[in-house]
């Protein structure tokens, strides 16, 4: 045991000297910076966060472990970020759900619990069916939905009241159908929901296009429409929901880096600078492009304004679909 430990020690020390050295020079970062992701491993938020974590690790010279704190429709992870010690050693990725969770009555937590670092991505949701489902296009699916009794169709792709749930409910309302027409099966993120679609557990799934890329290229599922204002550069053949049906509806998720409220201003500034550099890194940009994620950078105060607006818009649509807590 003793000998084993010592040999490991020297071996690991030899390997890690290069990584550990810069960490001692300044007081932040002091040790690993944990990046909390409120959604499951393999989903879009996880994938982009891991990429940012990896590059941040290089930039800061300390490890940036990504921790998936899933469950509770995103409440657990978002709460974990807000409750972390405000020292900059724990940051996280906040998603659109931070604006809907409190309207749903799941938590009291709002965007005000965070120090905004920067918004790095927003992606419209798209609607998927199995490739062998027999619906050629969006109007065909809507026609089938019109005839079907309530709850015969099942949909999945996010937690109860998650962005993909709202996308489906909003689409049904826009098309003049009752929300109960499709029963929502909560999942822990887009990846398990899409897998359930491929397996035949549900008939409809909503998710962003990059999240579905692997299953699409395997020929198992296909998108029918995307809920955006204009066609996407990455998928020029896919019509928007308005183009396909004439009904107007658009909704998408967004992702941004946040820290707990009350972190020292200089640490916040360093974080904004560091993450700001990461999102301009060519490696990051080509990764996001390869996987079809849109990129943007809306730092600090502007991000706060963005979250405020998103919060209001979500409250409106949740009230419209009857999911808001009375």
């Amino acid at each position: 045991m003793k000998l084993n430990r010592r040999s490991i020690l020297s071996l690991a020390a030899a390997l890690m000297v290069g990584v550990a050295a810069p960490a001692i020079a300044q007081d932040w970062p002091n040790g690993p910076v944990t990046l909390v992701v409120p959604w499951s491993a393999g989903g879009g938020t996880d994938a982009t966060a891991r990429m940012i974590g990896t590059l941040l690790e290089k930039k800061l010279g300390v490890p940036v472990p990504v921790v998936n704190r899933t469950g509770g429709s995103g409440v657990i992870g978002h709460t974990a970020i807000a409750d972390a010690a405000p020292d900059g050693q724990t940051i996280g990725v906040a998603t659109l759900e931070i604006g809907s969770m409190h309207t749903l009555g799941l938590t009291d937590l709002t965007y005000k619990a965070y120090t905004p670092i920067g918004l790095y991505n927003s992606d419209p949701a798209a609607l998927f069916v199995r490739a062998d489902a027999g619906y050629e296009d969006m109007p065909a699916l809507l026609a089938a939905l019109e005839k079907a009794p309530d709850r015969e169709f099942k949909g999945s792709g996010s937690a109860q009241g998650g962005v993909n749930h709202l996308a489906l409910a909003g689409m049904l309302l826009a098309a003049g159908l009752p929300v109960e027409r499709v029963a929502w099966v909560p999942s822990e993120g887009a990846a398990p929901g899409l897998q359930d679609l491929a397996a035949g557990g549900v008939q409809i799934a909503t998710a962003s296009l990059p999240e579905a890329a692997a299953l699409m290229s395997a020929g198992l599922i296909k998108p029918l429409a995307v809920f955006s204002e204009a066609r996407l550069e990455t998928a020029p053949d896919l019509p928007t929901f308005s183009q396909a049906t004439g009904h107007d509806f658009a909704l998408g998720s967004w992702r941004g880096v946040v820290a707990p409220a009350g972190i020292p201003e200089d640490v916040a500034a360093k974080l904004v600078a560091a993450v700001g550099e990461v999102v301009k890194d060519p490696e990051y940009l080509s990764f996001m492009k390869d996987r079809g994620y849109a990129t943007q950078w809306t730092p600090a105060a502007e991000f706060e304004t963005f979250m405020e607006n998103s919060d209001k818009a979500l409250a409106q649509s949740l009230n419209a679909v009857g999911l808001a807590k009375q």
Binding site: R5, L9, A12, A13, M16, A20, G31, P32, P63, Q89
Partner: peptide, 14 residues
């Protein structure tokens, strides 16, 4: 002491 140093210096356990 050995465990403490091993954890904090090499394995980054705070």
């Amino acid at each position: 002491l050995a465990v403490h140093l091993l954890m904090t210096r090499l394995l980054y356990v705070p």
